[in-house]
Amino acid sequence: MQNSSKESITIAEEFIRETKKQEQRAIIMKLVPIVLLIALIIIFGSITPQFLTVSNLYSNILEQLSILLVTSMGTTFVILMGGIDLSTEGMVGFAGCFVGLLVQNSANDMNLGILGIIITILFSALIGAGIGLIHTKLRLPSFIITFSAGYIAQGLGVLTYKGIPAAILDEGIRNLYFHKIAGLPVLTWIAFVVFFIALFLEKKTAFGRYVFAIGDNEKIPVMSGVNVNKVKILVFVWTGICFGIAGIMGAAKLGTSQIYIGQDLLFPTLTAVVVGGTSMSGGQGGVVNTLIGVLIVTVLQNGMVMAGVPNELQKGVQGLIIISVIVLSRRRSRKQIVK
């Protein structure tokens, strides 16, 4: 070899050493969410003993996180892909209103029961497909299209009941909330099922791998002949399904079909995904990360009420913790242009 190769090893090796250091840092940062979760549980547990009871940790928190878990499962895939979904509130609200009118209710004579649920989920999936199509074919950024879709869905939802919410009389749906299996309402178990399906999709299917690849470096799957557009559309279909399910769960809890079902869901969903460790730029993270994120958000909320933190401070505390987690767990190069 050339006489400078000895020195060239040094430069190349330096480079490799730097990369290794960064990778070690990355591994540590991956642990931040779990550490935070444990820390929160310990802190809140010590402030309020009732926090640590089975009744709170199990029956309460798990029930409280159900809807959030379902919406987050959908949104995780969109963010993994490098996009973002802002349609959560409208879509979930719409699904809640829609299903209310299809099953036995006080406003009309429909009584479709489980068929109503299926139709609602299918319809939400369809809207998701529409969003995906517009995003890929018209090349509108996901930010814009989901934002608008959310508003449109919200409008449609409100139209369905025109100011007078229908009370849901279908026992099956109400029992999703009232009926308990092993101390948890049926809808919580459904949330777990959704989680496991998401896990399967992420880890066991080619689809899951493609989502990561697209988020990491879209050129490569395109070059490898993967139908990137199809994958993107499918991601939004999945999100639509998740939002549909979440809407039905919300309707079951409230007992009426109102647009409120979707209210205040967007920010916690995005927070859960990001805090859990799924990077906003895509290609990193996953549904297990999001599960941790959902737990963090719910535990934080629950713990603060338990601890009697004054209302005015709660939002501030939440914001602080979220920013800290994100700062700690992201690598930002100085030269990255942050918009």
Binding site: Q50, F51, Q64, Q301, N302, V305
Partner: peptide, 9 residues
């Protein structure tokens, strides 16, 4: 959510 939390507390 507040209700269930309070019931627990």
């Amino acid at each position: 959510t507040l209700t269930t939390t309070w019931l627990n507390k």
